[in-house]
C-alpha cells in the first residue's frame, strides 16, 4: 500500500514538490486516491481527476493523467457532463469542504439524487485554507477562524448525511489519521457504480489548528484519533457529546442503478 512505484504512472513528477503546507493532509489523500486507481488497474487515459477551487483543487497539477479543474463549487456539475459524454471513464471529483459544502452543495445533492456514476472525495480541513482560514459550513460550532474570532455561530453541516439522504449509493467518512480505513473507503467508492462519496477529515495546521490552538500537524492528527469515533458509537452519544466529536465509518452501501443506465433503459423503451 505504501509502494510509491504503483502510483508513479499517475504522478507529474516534474511538478513536485507540491505547494501544500507542511502537515497538510492533501498529499496523503491524493496518494491514496492514486493508489486506489492503481489497485483497480485503471489506465491513465481512462481516468479523469476533476478538482475544485481551493487547496485540494491544486491536486490536478500533480497528476499526469486527464485533469479537469472548473469553477469554484461546480465540479460535480462539470463532471456530470464529462461522465455522461463518455460513461467508460472513471471520473473522480476531489473537492474541499467549502467548495463542495457551501457554494457547491446544490450540485452535491443533485449528483447524489441522480446517482451519477462519479466518485466524490471531499477533503474536509474544517475551513477555507486557500483564502486564509475563514469558517466553512463544516467548521464545528464555536471554532475560531479568521471570520469568527469569537467562535463560529451555527452548527457544522454533515455533508455525508445529506448525500446519503439524497440518494448516493455509497457514503463513508474517515480521516487522514486512519490511513488504512481511508484507503479501504476510497477503494470501495471507486468500485461503486452510481454516486459514491468519501469525506476525509484532514489537518490544516496553518489556519484551523493555529487559530484554535490545537498545535501542529501531529497534534491535529491526534485530535482526529481521539475525536473521530466509529459511527455506531457516535450514534449512541448524547447530542451535546456528539457536537465535540466526528463520526467515521460507512453510512450507506447500496446498489441502485446509476443515472446513465436508467436513462438508456428508459429511452430504449420508446
Amino acid at each position: 500500500m505504501n509502494n510509491l512505484k504503483e502510483i508513479d504512472q499517475y504522478l507529474a513528477h516534474k511538478k513536485l514538490p507540491h505547494m501544500w503546507c507542511p502537515g497538510c493532509g492533501n498529499g496523503v489523500i491524493l496518494k491514496h486516491l492514486l493508489l486506489g486507481l492503481a489497485v483497480l488497474g485503471i489506465p491513465r487515459e481512462k481516468a479523469v481527476l476533476a478538482s475544485g477551487i481551493g487547496c485540494s483543487g491544486r491536486a490536478g497539477d500533480y497528476v499526469n493523467f486527464h485533469r479537469f479543474q472548473g469553477t469554484h463549487g461546480r465540479t460535480l456539475a462539470f463532471a456530470t457532463g464529462i461522465h455522461l459524454s463518455n460513461p467508460e471513464l472513471t471520473v473522480v471529483c476531489l473537492m474541499g469542504d467549502g467548495d463542495c459544502g457551501a457554494i457547491g452543495l446544490n450540485h452535491l445533492l443533485h449528483a447524489a439524487r441522480r446517482n451519477i456514476n462519479i466518485t466524490a472525495i471531499v477533503a474536509n480541513n474544517l475551513n477555507y485554507g486557500m483564502t486564509g482560514g475563514q469558517y466553512s459550513p463544516s467548521t464545528p460550532e464555536d471554532s475560531l477562524t479568521s471570520t469568527s474570532r469569537q467562535g463560529k455561530t451555527g452548527a457544522a453541516l454533515d455533508l455525508c448525511r445529506l448525500a446519503a439522504e439524497a440518494g448516493a449509493n455509497y457514503v463513508a467518512r474517515s480521516t487522514v489519521y486512519h490511513v488504512r480505513e481511508m484507503h479501504k473507503y476510497i477503494l470501495e467508492a471507486l468500485n461503486t457504480r452510481g454516486f459514491s462519496m468519501v469525506e476525509l477529515l484532514t489537518p490544516c495546521p496553518t489556519y484551523y489548528g493555529r487559530y484554535n490552538k490545537i498545535g501542529d500537524a501531529v497534534q491535529m492528527l491526534e485530535m482526529f484519533k481521539e475525536k473521530a469515533i466509529p459511527l455506531n458509537k457516535f450514534q449512541n452519544m448524547e447530542e451535546s457529546e456528539q457536537q465535540n466529536h466526528f463520526w467515521r465509518g460507512v453510512l450507506v452501501r447500496k446498489n441502485n442503478p446509476d443515472f446513465y443506465t436508467r436513462y438508456r433503459q428508459k429511452e430504449a423503451v420508446q
Binding site: F68, G70, T71, R74, A77, F78, A79, T80, G81, I82, H83, L84, S85, N86, L89, N106, H107, L109, H110
Partner: peptide, 18 residues
C-alpha cells in the same frame, strides 16, 4: 440540471468528453 450554472457546466464537461 439543478440550475443554469450547472447546465452550462455539464455542457462544458460533455464537450470535453467529445
Amino acid at each position: 440540471m439543478e440550475d443554469e450554472i450547472a447546465s452550462i457546466a455539464a455542457v462544458i464537461g460533455a464537450s470535453l468528453g467529445g
